[in-house]
Design a protein around this nucleic acid. Structure first.
Lengths: 347, 347
DNA sequence: ATGGAGCTTGTAAGCGCTTACATTTTCAGG
DNA sequence: CCTGAAAATGTAAGCGCTTACAAGCTCCAT
């Protein structure tokens, strides 16, 4: 069928230039800054581009222009709806600015994250989105040295040198804890994601402790169970909690998924929620509304955060590159899983 | 502080070569095919690499090697847990093979998908992962011409020219429909995602029709409501369904999220599930288990699919590039939302 | 010793595009 | 019709890396 044994696989800039009878520089200008080119010439070039079905070679462009227009993101895992949602918005906004998203995941492991960050930079990421602050100084130095604009997301702590678009995990959880305390709960327990290299998880637990301190209670008395992200793990955590701290009247969970686990375990153990045991979450993912009873939780504007992160990063990649932070507000969603404790035991 | 006014921003291959007193070719070989280099030389080069903190320039490498080691994926949206999960596994497996994931989303719009595919190719994607078969022939031609290995996912139909790693949506849904029929249901309704440019949604509805035909019923009598993906839309769809087809004893939904909506609406309308109305889903996402009653649905091995897709694509990118398809098995998860109809009305 | 097979290493030619600088064209004002 | 500034276009030098080809070595069978 195909008579030509070796057709030029794909047109190059030079082909277009020849076809339109102009120099390669003119073609390049037509594509990158059309205003610089005369109208008739431009028309001719564009026609040639269309006829040859020309598309610039990515590598060559990256090499010559020293930028790839791709931004990288390293997230713990897409399976967490929270990140999926935020990243989706992030990517959409990025697309609006002509940038493409390069993605990698760390599975919540610091060393893996380190690796992934370097890999993305090696892959030509012009900028980076990272989750939370926790990572080795060496990594930050590396990014600094390569001058890769980097934005922290899903967290925001004043006083940190890194620009961030996120929310104050500690303050948000503290606000919820205050409400819990106001409801009259004396025995608060907490189920948290592993706090090892996860500043967000840590901050949330700290938020509870902070609220406890405010009312003169011993923050160190807070019973905390750390378990990996997951519904089953949340169930196990609740069992463990009630075994070790049977007086518990409310379990504040580090995220909605753990809370769902707690809810299930409670039901399985014959406890009524919220009458016998109150449960709270964090994130306000869809599941929180679907739960029975619906979960009282901290609402986080994940989509908005993703969008703002993209905008901020794009701005940081621009000329000035002024890093700027943004704190997004969170708020408490009151739903059925929280009520005053039945038996207002002891002092 | 910094006394040197202009430090070389970042080391190049040539710098390393000079530092190790070898040619650039040797350094390149050390990095790409170490076996070709003598042990002592290699050690010296590696030392230089480490000392200079060298990292290859992506653009240059891509230009010279004519490949970027990145693969692109265009998915409808990450907010759908199904894709989030599959893509997560896809990315992990890709990482294991030294490839990076470039991601874009189509919001279920064909024109947007077309655009995104071209953008990813322009961004140097060496291969592509696409969801389902539905897209313009022009796009397929484009990919063919650029010889970009492309794999279809989340679907598999025999007889299609495109290689695919997925499952048979129609067969899976037909299997479930057969069970529903076996339970004695005479009035089946269906809530589906918009079938416009979504072959998966179409195939699932077709599956029900097929099962209906098999037992001699009129497939065209199936009452189908099409609504966008979402819980609220699922609720609306159920209301609409029961208004138009009040005899309905079972609603088969195109996916679990719509089913969740149906479940909620049913409860809100005072219907007991499954006694008054049975509901089924498709996908078996976490939420299906959490629902009350738990959702009877079609289990799809999303993670496994992602992993296999990555492996297949990597193989396709290799020397031979032999396209190969893979059909993954799905199975029915029997749970509480389906039971025989209460009133076995008419014939 | 000696030729040469098999390793190692070096030389240098691009890969396709951007862009600083040079050159030519255009055109308003005189 | 001339002049010079501004606009349009061209020239050509890289960008940093890979790799075909060539050259230099090592070392063993002869």
């Amino acid at each position: 069928m195909d008579t030509t044994p070796k057709e030029p696989p794909v047109a190059t800039l030079a082909d277009v230039a020849r076809h339109a009878d102009v120099s390669t520089a003119t073609v390049s200008r037509c594509l990158n800054s059309p205003a610089q080119v005369g109208a008739r010439t431009r028309a001719r070039v564009m026609k040639a581009v269309a006829e040859l079905n020309y598309a610039p070679n990515f590598g060559a462009r990256a090499l010559a222009a020293k930028q790839t227009n791709t931004v990288g993101a390293v997230i713990p895992t897409m399976e967490n709806a929270v990140f999926a949602r935020g990243i989706q918005a992030f990517q959409e906004e990025l697309g609006r600015h002509g940038k493409t998203l390069l993605i990698a995941s760390s599975a919540y492991q610091e060393t893996l994250e380190d690796e992934q960050v370097r890999a993305l930079v090696a892959r030509g990421a012009d900028a980076l989105l990272l989750i939370g602050y926790d990572r080795s100084p060496a990594l930050y130095e590396f990014l600094e040295k390569r001058s890769v604009p980097t934005l922290v997301c899903w967290a925001h702590e004043t006083g940190k040198p890194q620009p961030a678009v996120g929310f104050d995990n500690a303050a948000a959880m503290a606000a919820l804890a205050r409400q819990v305390i106001a409801e009259g709960h004396q025995h608060i327990a907490c189920i948290s994601a592993p706090m090892g290299a996860n500043d967000r998880a840590r901050a949330r637990v700290d938020g509870i402790r902070q609220a406890l301190s405010e009312v003169g209670r011993d923050p160190d008395a807070l019973f905390v169970t750390e378990v990996p992200y997951g519904i089953e793990t949340g169930e196990l955590a609740l069992e463990k909690t009630l075994k070790s701290a049977p007086d518990t009247t409310v379990v504040m969970c580090g995220n909605d998924v753990l809370a769902m686990g707690a809810l299930r375990a409670a039901r399985r153990m014959g406890l009524r929620v919220p009458e016998d045991l109150s449960v709270t979450g964090f994130d306000d993912i869809e599941i929180a509304l679907l739960a029975d009873p619906a979960l009282t939780t901290v609402h986080v504007p994940h989509r908005e955060m993703g969008r703002q992160a993209a905008r901020t990063l794009v701005r940081m990649m621009g000329r000035d590159g002024a890093p700027e932070s943004l704190v997004l507000p969170t708020d408490i969603r009151w739903r059925g899983s929280l009520c005053p404790p039945r038996r207002s035991v002891d002092a």
